[in-house]
Design a protein around this nucleic acid. Structure first.
Lengths: 211, 211
DNA sequence: ACCTGAACACCGTTCAAGT
DNA sequence: ACCTGAACACCGTTCAAGT
């Protein structure tokens, strides 16, 4: 029943038609991720979710590692890089960071640094951040340095969200120190981001006004 | 041959004396970690390194997860919180961040956010950082917010080091953007830390001078 | 007290045989 | 082309039996 999209006529294909799509597999993996964490999602569980034998998955996805990256790509895909007309470089950067964090935060079982190191969508956002800085008037070296600082902050923030959401380290590390302070994680993110952007502006010679 | 440390006389013990110590186990795990990564180190491999059957390890360490935390504790143990006499709050904070990063960076197979969420040593350093801020004159809320920002930066930096060292994501995310810039990772860390501290000073009302 | 072989309930993935 | 059962080489951990 395959239909050629250009001609609209049926096109003969050899062998069986696909019974699944990559997207179905990714969405099944993401659903299971939200019930625990991506590391704990097994290929067998994904297959079970879709009602197929494990090995069927391997017709669509080369390995668990590739599946991990596809899941991160899927989550990051809707995040948009704010266009130049939307404001000054720091406003655009704030919007980008907020959007990326929000996307990741919806899926606490996902760790960017664990699963997304090869993500194409992450690369797209990184390039978007660089564009924002360059269009904001940063010279190449300053832009790269500023990017590294912002990326570091973002990465740490997402990891921290995961740590906090998992309930681990509650007694030990972070929560013990910030508990009792009347700030939630979103406020801490905004205040921290303000500080980082102010620091970049002060130390890396950012121009003022819109880019 | 057990000797009571107080009396100096021999003390009878029941059953077999220990054939291992926790420290030997942790060091074996760390050695194997440096050859790949802690996640890839199996309990069987640790036992093999020590020349004992797997199950012997479980007489000393309750689980792999506990072993992971002990390894992080071991690595963080030598990191000192700079005393008040060593300088102003920002100098002390820089020294602490540098020392902690250096310790983690010696063992790229280790991820703080993956393995150290329950680390007591990490908690000690977090408390040290809070003390530095409080002694530097930050009010409680400001200190907690500043701490969260610095901790986030640090966490991201360590994750970034791991990403960069693993060679993963080289094409995709970070390296592509900062490659070709004449800055190495240590310089990026220092410059980023400068920016974060400047930003905290500017936005969170840090006093000047030594604490 | 401490040691340890056998076994359990899992993994990701290869391979070969099916249609 | 796509599907899939069986098997391989692993895991962490429980349990029971040893000294």
């Amino acid at each position: 029943m395959s239909v050629d999209e250009a001609s609209g006529t049926e096109v003969p294909r050899r062998g069986r038609p696909p019974s699944l799509t990559r997207d179905e597999i990714v969405e099944a993996a993401l659903k299971l991720t939200d019930e625990s964490s991506l590391d704990e999602v097994s290929m067998r569980a994904v297959a079970g979710e879709l009602g197929v034998p494990v090995m069927t998955i391997y017709n669509y996805v080369a390995s668990k590692e590739v599946l991990n990256e596809l899941v991160v790509d899927h989550v990051l895909h809707p995040v948009e890089v704010p266009s130049p007309e939307t404001g000054s470089w720091d406003e655009r950067m704030r919007a980008l960071q907020r959007a990326a964090r929000r996307a990741m935060r919806r899926h606490p079982g996902l760790s960017f640094s664990r699963h997304g190191s090869g993500s194409h969508e992450a690369a797209r956002l990184a390039e978007g951040a660089m564009s924002i800085l360059r269009e904001g008037g940063f010279a190449a070296t300053q832009a790269a340095t500023a990017f590294a600082t912002l990326f570091t902050f973002m990465l740490g923030q997402v990891e921290l969200d995961v740590l906090a959401d998992s309930g681990a380290g509650g007694e030990a590390t972070f929560e013990s120190v910030t508990t009792g302070i009347g700030l939630n994680r979103d406020q801490l993110f905004e205040t921290g981001l303000d500080a980082v952007i102010a620091g970049i502006t002060a130390t890396m010679g950012a121009p003022t006004g819109r880019g």
